[in-house]
Structure formats: structure tokens, C-alpha cells
Amino acid sequence: MSKYKDLQSIFIDRIEVSQYIGLDTSILFYNKLLESIQKPLKMILLYGKPGTGKSVLINKIYHDAKDRRNVFLISTPIQNETEFIKKLYTFLLPESTMPEDLSYNQFIDICNALRDKKHITVLLDEAQLYSSSLMEKIRLISDTRAIKFVVSLHKTEKEDLIAKEHFQSRIWETIELKNGTIHDTAMYVQKKLIIQNYFEIANMFHKGNIKLIHKFTKGNYREINKLLFTLFEIYDYYETNKPSKISGTKIKNRYIEMSALKLGYINA
């Protein structure tokens, strides 16, 4: 596997704990969320635009806290209400004790019975995909205080409104994730490469490159991944076909612009 192909794989967008980059802002959010989880809150709302790192953060929290606390993650929304209830039951009690026809009301009763005995935290990723009725039920479950929910939502005007309507009275903590600054972009690119021991490639990115990357991606981590993936795809092509074109110790802005053209950030 060529060097540039390997580099492409670093920037494939995937939600893995290993992909978590400890940027200044993300560390701040991480600590804030961890702190909130420790508090006796009913619900925590985590929202932000797609690609701002909500899923990675939730995964990181789940990875770090699952051993110490009763923290569980539902990364893919379960649309079926019964399935969802059953899943929650497994978080609270052993699966063997679960009644065969567990209804929502039964589950609420169980939660109320466990109120002072057990507390768990359930992380709900992509919560905007849950139906309104299910969200309403989640809200009522949180009232039992047996389960604390961390709801991760995409922030759109409509979804923001839904979030407010459903959780306004119950949400004690709101964390909004935003696109990174130019400094975050630089740190993100550098750290991603350094973690994979690509020090010489990390050094090839100069200030101008980062400015350009930030300009095209607006500091959105998913877009940064996409852009750098395409960039290294282009580098891979030149390495195979025209190696003289990529000689040098710096990343050429020309290839970043070509990547942006390919991804449609800019038009010719």
C-alpha cells in the first residue's frame, strides 16, 4: 500500500474512539459532558451541525465512562418502540429477567421501582431520527430518574425547535458543538497525521495550506476529512503517474484547490 493510500485511510470519515482528536475545544466539551453526566440531571442535550464531532464525542464518553459508570450508548436510533424499551431494560437489568411482552407502562413501573437503587446514563446518538411519540416517551422515562439521557441532535432550526419543545423543562444542560477555528483545523490535521506517525507529512502542511483548508471546509471536521482524503488521492495519482509534480517539502495549494473543485466547494 502506497504512502498516500494509507494517508487517505486516516481521513476516511468514521466514528471511532481512535479517531477522537483532543483539540482544545473538544477537550472542553468532553469535560463539560462528563461533568454533566455526574450531576443528577434528567436530560442533557448535545447539539450542533453535522460534522462538528457530536458522534465522536459521545463515543469517546461512552468508551471512557462505561467501566466506571453505568453509561450505555444507542448509536443507531431504534425506531420500534418495543425494541427500544427492551434495549433500555437490558441496560437496567439482566436480559434473562426481561418479561416476554414488556410494555412501555410496565417499563415505567420498573424504572419507578428502581428510582433510588439504580441510575444509568443512556447516550442517544442521532436523536433527531426518533419519532415525536417516542421522544415523548423518552421524556417520560427520564422523569423516573432511573435513566438519564444524553440526546445528541443535529442542529437545524426545525430540530432545535423540536428539542426545545420536548425537553425544555427537563433539560438541565445544553452543549452546543460548533465548527472548529483555524487553530482547531491546524491541530486536527497535524494531530491526525502525527497519531499515525506521519510526521514528515504533518510538517508539509504550512500556514497557507491550513488557511485554505479552513476556508473551504469552514472548520467542519467531516469536510476536513473529505478534503484531505481527496488531497491524498490526488497525491497518490501523481506519485504513480507524474512523481515530479509532487516533489518538494510542502503541500501545494494547487492540489488543495483541485480537491475543493472535485468536492464542489468551489467552481471553475
Partner: peptide, 18 residues
């Protein structure tokens, strides 16, 4: 698969426009 020649043309156009 990347169409580098097309991309290069587009890049030239983009630069001229810029």
C-alpha cells in the same frame, strides 16, 4: 477514479477566474 486532467483544466479556469 480521479480524472486529473479534467481537474487540472478546471483548476486553471478557477485560477483565471480568481
Amino acid at each position: 477514479m480521479l480524472e486529473i486532467e479534467k481537474l487540472e483544466k478546471e483548476w486553471r479556469k478557477y485560477k483565471i477566474k480568481q
